[in-house]
Every structure is written in structure tokens, then in C-alpha cells.
Write a protein that binds this DNA or RNA. Structure first.
Length: 282
DNA sequence: AGGTTCGCCTGCGGGC
DNA sequence: TGCCCGCAGGCGAACC
């Protein structure tokens, strides 16, 4: 399940093999992802050059001279390179044939991901293509990146003001901050000592300082660890390197808390499994 | 209008 | 063993 660290790891991994290379062809075997892949996309991207890549939240943008190919990995998606003629398996939905002889392959068993297009040809001259994709409907109202200065305790404190929503649901809301999925929300709240069910508006500035710090730490640690396995999947074995993250609470309901040995509890919040220590998290 | 639930999918694990 | 069912999850859309 790609969360922000996996998406960043993927983006960094494919970047050197894509940047500056031309798309010779695009093959769609299964267009039915979360939204259908635009039927005309292969015609549209044929002959375009991937000038640069960027990531916004869990979206990856492949910027070309005419616009941006937007890729989301959903729950089970991955992007990696295969050699010419590598036979596609059942869930290998899309290939991009590149001028450097490599093929970029998109695999997504559960098809929660997406491949879309943002056309930049009608933008005003000043707006660079790199920036223009953020005007896309899916990206326009996203909150700040968690690892930038824009995401800080003061920001989150002000956003949470008067909110009755549970803090866990709140930090998983991409309008508040992007890239905090279920695993890291659970982990960050545990490390912060904040109870996941606590109303966001009742958390004080001091606690938000701790929480923001923990979110940044958990995410950047995961990116670091993801980075160590980069070459494994760029080499083309078809599996992104899922880093080994030591999880304190996620998936450990019923087990003892690593801090106080109380039995970890599980609940549902917004349909998501929520695990916490009822004595460490207040 | 803020907040909650739904629905898209397949793989997997538990129960029998 | 094999089948069936329930659950898992990102996140926009639909709903209340």
C-alpha cells in the first residue's frame, strides 16, 4: 500500500530513466482504473518528451512539453521498468515505450490507481508546465506537503480550531495535509501520545508542535529507508521496495504497548482501522 | 457546510 | 483441501 514515502521512492527511482527521454508509444491493456484512462492518451503522448517529474501528495506528474501525465498508485499500484518484450502479466495494465529502450510499466491489481492527463497547451505563457498540473481538479485543493515549512504546528492548530472531528480523521484529510495515510496516522499519534479519537479542536498548540514533529519524523524516516531499496525495483524485478518500518501500533492490536505493556486497542474511525494505547495516548 | 459513509477492486486470511 | 465470506485500503463522490 503505497503511502507518501513509497510514492516519493518510486518517483526518485524512475526519474533518472525517464527524464529527457521521448515516449515512443503507450500501450493500454486495461483502461478501467479508478477513472478510465483517457482513450486518446496514447495518441496524445506519442512523441512527447518527459522533461521532468514531480510529486504532489501521492500523485506523480510526468511533465512533457504539452502537459502532464498524472499517475496515482492507489492501493496496490507500482511503476517500474521492464526490458523490451517482457510479457505482461494479468495486472500489468499500461506500458510506456521510451526512446532509451526501456519500458515503463504500470501494475495495479486492485485498480484503485489512476492515469490521467492535464493539458497545459492552453495555459498562459508565464505558467510553467511543472506548476500548471497543480490546477488539475484532483490537485487544486490539496493541503501542504507534510515535509515542507508550510506544514507546521501553527498552521494545523488554526485549521483544527472548533473542529469536532477526531484528530486521526483530521490529519488523514488531504485538504489539511497530504500524504498521511492510515499507517502513519496511527504511528504518528502513538509517538505523539495523542488519542486518535480526541477532537481536533481540543488539542492545544503545544501538542500540535509534537504531532507535527512526529508526522515529519515518521514520514522522512520511511523515505530514507525506502531509498535504500531503490535499485532493487529500478532494476526491474517489478516490486517497489517496501521498506521495513518498525511499527509500534499498526497491525498490533491485542499486543502489548512497546512503552507501557498495556494491551493495544483497536477501533474504527472513518472506516479505517485505528490502533492505539489507551494509557499512553490521551 | 462540515462531517460521515459509500464504492471502486483483488488478494488474503480465517472459519468450517 | 477447498470454498466462502469479510476485511483491507486511498480518496473522490455522494450523502446527510
Amino acid at each position: 500500500m503505497p503511502e507518501l514515502p513509497e510514492v516519493e521512492t518510486t518517483k526518485r527511482g524512475i526519474e533518472p530513466h525517464l527524464k529527457g527521454h521521448k515516449i515512443i508509444s503507450m500501450v493500454i491493456r486495461q483502461p478501467k482504473l479508478r477513472w478510465p484512462i483517457p482513450t486518446n492518451l496514447p495518441d496524445l503522448v506519442k512523441g512527447l518528451t518527459v522533461l521532468s517529474l514531480s510529486r504532489r501528495g501521492k500523485y506523480i506528474g510526468l511533465h512533457t512539453e504539452k502537459g502532464t501525465i498524472i499517475v496515482h498508485l492507489g492501493m496496490s499500484g507500482s511503476l517500474y521498468f521492464v526490458g523490451e518484450g517482457t510479457p505482461p502479466l494479468f495486472h500489468d495494465h499500461v506500458d510506456f515505450q521510451l526512446s532509451n529502450g526501456k519500458w515503463l510499466r504500470y501494475t495495479d491489481p486492485r485498480r484503485f490507481g489512476a492515469i490521467l492527463w492535464h493539458d497545459a497547451s492552453s495555459e498562459e505563457k508565464n505558467a510553467s508546465i511543472k506548476d500548471s498540473w497543480q490546477q488539475h481538479t484532483l490537485l487544486a485543493s490539496l493541503g501542504p506537503e507534510p515535509l515542507t515549512m508550510d506544514f507546521n504546528a501553527n498552521y494545523l492548530f488554526l485549521k483544527a480550531k472548533n473542529k469536532k472531528q477526531a484528530i486521526k480523521t483530521f490529519i488523514m484529510d488531504s485538504k489539511q495535509v497530504v500524504g498521511v495515510g492510515n499507517i502513519y496516522a496511527n504511528e504518528a499519534l502513538f509517538l505523539s501520545g495523542i488519542h486518535p479519537h480526541k477532537a481536533a479542536g481540543t488539542i492545544n498548540a503545544e501538542q500540535f508542535t509534537v504531532l507535527v514533529d512526529c508526522i515529519k519524523k515518521v514520514l522522512s524516516k520511511a523515505i530514507e529507508q525506502g531509498g535504500t531499496t531503490l535499485k532493487d525495483f529500478v532494476g526491474g524485478d517489478g516490486k517497489p521496495g517496501y521498506f521495513k518500518q518498525s511499527l509500534n501500533v499498526y497491525g498490533r492490536a491485542g499486543d502489548p504497548c512497546v512503552t507501557c505493556s498495556s494491551i493495544l486497542e483497536e477501533s474504527r474511525l472513518g472506516q479505517r482501522s485505528t490502533v492505539f494505547c489507551n494509557s499512553c495516548q490521551k
